[in-house]
Design a protein around this nucleic acid. Structure first.
Length: 285
DNA sequence: GCCCAGGTGCGGC
DNA sequence: GCCGCACATGGG
């Protein structure tokens, strides 16, 4: 089924968005960006102000609207971000990048796997999980119930596989629901993932921020990985100094201090700026 | 073979 | 609390 959404003058570049590193396993084929949203096979193409959508089973347009975070308009992003020169530069250069709202379970799975791996390796591993589940490396990913049926032949994910299984059980048994995160403030949701009991193995301060930004509409989240940390030191050194963080290795306490001062400085749409900074660092180094 | 990549858990002070 | 280390994969 072919659908479309008119986004008016809102800046949105599919190439920049899907190659930004926030989402995995999307491929541009014959001009269409193709991937999965949950168990729906989806393709997007942009012509002029229109986003064209193919999906099987057909997605509700509200889902697509939320997927691209279209409720956040570019003007309010610009108005809430600080006016220093470098921030202006990033906004001008990368405004076509949108924050995508992924399926929460898939997002958690991807970012638990992501730790200390390259984006390329993450994609490969997710493809491998898809292959174990569907027999096709370009297939969909197993849900929380489905992943428990899979028995990997080798230990290709190490302890991370156990972390995924533990999380899937918490979801299947209902002791944790991702929907909860959407109802909480950023601060409470982050604490729920990182501090509160029961603890989630494999979800530290940075992975938690990614889950909140990329699947729980927490646009003030500011994930700090190696690239973003370097970016902050290089372009926003006063933020790093005022938070008292010196070493590259961030403990939870240090991470929280730095993340909080960045979030205070960049404001309610910190997450967009974080993404611009992440892409900029990767493209220029 | 070594280094780095969207970090985290763990044991030991 | 912080430090040092192990951990799996893949590309340069």
């Amino acid at each position: 089924m072919l659908q479309e959404i008119n986004i008016g003058e809102e800046p949105l570049e599919l190439d920049a968005t899907f190659t930004s590193g926030q989402i995995f396993r999307w491929h541009k084929i014959d001009g269409w960006w193709q991937g999965w949203i949950g168990h729906s096979k989806v393709a997007f193409k942009k012509t002029g102000n229109l986003i064209q959508i193919r999906s099987v089973p057909t997605l509700d347009l509200d889902v697509v609207h939320n997927f691209f975070s279209l409720q956040v308009d570019h003007k309010s992003i610009i108005e809430s971000l600080p006016e220093d020169r470098f921030t202006r530069y990033l906004v001008k250069k990368y405004s076509g990048i949108r924050i995508l709202q992924q399926d929460a379970w898939e997002c958690a799975m991807a970012y638990i796997i992501s730790s200390s791996l390259s984006i390329n390796a993450i994609n490969k591993i997710l493809d491998r999980i898809s292959f174990l589940f569907t027999g096709d490396s370009r297939g969909c990913l197993p849900g929380p119930h489905e992943i428990q049926m899979i028995r990997p032949l080798d230990n290709f994910l190490g302890k991370k596989w156990d972390y995924l299984i533990i999380l899937s059980k918490q979801i299947v048994e209902g002791t944790f629901k991702f929907e909860l995160l959407r109802t909480l403030t950023y601060e409470s949701a982050w604490r729920r993932l990182v501090i509160d009991e029961p603890h989630f193995k494999g979800i530290g301060p940075k992975v938690a921020d990614c889950i909140l930004l990329f699947s729980a509409n927490k646009y003030s989240s500011f994930p700090i990985d190696r690239w973003v940390f370097r970016g902050l030191k290089k372009y926003y050194s006063s933020l790093v100094e005022e938070s008292g963080v010196s070493s590259e290795h961030l403990t939870i306490t240090k991470y929280k201090k730095l993340s909080d001062s960045a979030r205070q400085y960049f404001g309610k749409f910190s997450g967009f700026l974080q993404e611009y900074l992440f892409v900029h660092l990767r493209n220029t180094n």
